[in-house]
Amino acid sequence: MSETTVDIDIAALRRKQPRFRGIEAGHRACLGCGQALAARLMTEAAGPDVTLTNATGCLEVFTTPWPESAWRVPWMHSLFENSAAIAAGVEAAYKMQGRKTKVIAMGGDGSTFDIGFQALSGALERGHNMLYICYDNEAYMNTGIQRSSSTPHAATTTTSPAGKARMGKRHLKKDIITIIAAHHIPYAATTSVAYPSDVRKKVRRAMAIEGPTFLLIHAPCPLGWGHEGNLTIEVARLAVQTGLFPIIELERGQLANAMPIRDPRPVTDYLKVQNRFRHLFADDLRAKEELEHLQALADYNMETYDLRGEGPDAMDTEAADTVKRRGTRWA
C-alpha cells in the first residue's frame, strides 16, 4: 500500500508541472526550510519575466553552491548590504533598454533590517520600479544564529543567549513595516508561508504596481528556532494566530487591510513549540514576566491593527488556508 507510482517518468513530469518553476530541487536548504518555501511560492507568482538580486544569506548560499544554481530566472548576488542597490541599477539599465522586466530584490532580515537597510531606504526613496522581498526568519541563520534587529524580544540566539544575566534578546523586534511605510511607497505588505495563497496574491499585487513595493514574508527556520522541520507551517500559522506576526497591507503608508484573527491563541501556544523560547517555561519569575511581556506585545498588535475578527470571515486566519477537493482553493 505504501508504494507510490513507478511507471511515471519523474524527470519528464518535473518539466510538465502546471506552475512556473523559478527555483528547482537540489538546493541545499535544511529540512523544512521556510525560506526555501517562501522563495518557491514567490517565483511561482512572479513568473518567468523577472530578474532577481539576492543579498548574502541562506537563500544565496543554498541555491548557488558553485558550479550549480537552483534558479531558472536571471539571478545575481553581490554583497550582504547591496541587494536593493544592485536591483536599483538593474532596473535603471532595463529602463534605458526599454525592457519591462520586473526586478525583485531579495534579502533576509539581517540584510534588510540591518546591513542593507540604507541601500533599501535609498532605493525606495528614489522610486525605482522594483519589488523588495524580505524573508524574515528573525536572526542571522546563515552565519550561526546571531541576533538581528528582527529577532523577537526574549528569543535566545548565540549572541543573545538566555541565562543568568538575560532572558534572551533584551531589545524588541524592529517595526520595519512602519519604517517602510514612512517612505510613502505605493504598496507594502506582510505575509506568512502558513498562508501560501496570501503570499502569491501579495506578490502578484506588488508586481502589478509601478514603483517601489515591499513584502515581508515570515518564514520559520527550524534550525534557528528550534523546532522539527515538519512543523514549519504549524509554527508560522501560530505566529499569525497569536497576533505576534500581523498580516497586513499598507497602501501609500496607510493600513489598507489586515487578516482578521478568528480565534486568537495565547502566545504560549506559539512559544512553547520552539526551543528559542524554551527558557520562558522554566520555573523563574523573570520567565513569567517575559511571557506576559510577549502576550502584551501580541495584544498591542491586535489593537494597533484591529486584528480581532468579528465572526467567521472568508479571509481570516481560519478560512484563508481552507482547502478543497482538487486544489480549488489554492490561488
Partner: peptide, 9 residues
C-alpha cells in the same frame, strides 16, 4: 552557473 543545475545534486 547554468539554470537548474542544482538538479545534479
Amino acid at each position: 552557473a547554468h539554470p537548474e543545475t542544482s538538479l545534479d545534486f
